[in-house]
């Protein structure tokens, strides 16, 4: 059971973690990273599954179903586009000249 101040602490620490992860990111990765973080909040799928699994009314079941559908779309779509973008960031070839990409 998480409550009161413990919840606030989790919130604070997680917020700092997110801030720190982004703070030192090179601009070239901003788009993939935004897409990646978009994928990560696809975890909402798990919550939607729980909500649907506990729904008691037809309204709850219908909306819960919709929630799982949308959540699965967020997670799967987010994963595919992020992976596709990141696949292009291959280490630069020796022909590149600079050689800093290694």
């Amino acid at each position: 059971m998480i409550d009161g101040f413990l919840a606030l602490y989790i919130f604070m620490l997680a917020a700092f973690t997110g801030y720190e992860i982004i703070a030192r990111v090179p601009v070239i990765l901003h788009t993939p990273l935004m897409s990646g973080s978009n994928f990560v909040h696809g975890i909402v799928l798990v919550g939607a599954m729980v909500a649907l699994g506990r729904a008691q009314t037809p309204f709850g079941i219908a909306v819960g179903f919709l929630g799982v559908l949308l959540g699965a779309g967020n997670a799967a779509g987010g994963y595919v586009v992020t992976a596709r973008m990141l696949q292009m960031f291959k280490a630069s070839r020796p022909a590149g000249g600079g050689g800093e990409g290694r």
Binding site: A14, A15, F16, I21, I22, S37, V40, H41
Partner: peptide
């Protein structure tokens, strides 16, 4: 909570 907050802050 954690994934959502991290994404919210980032």
């Amino acid at each position: 909570i954690i994934a959502g907050t991290v994404v919210g802050a980032a």
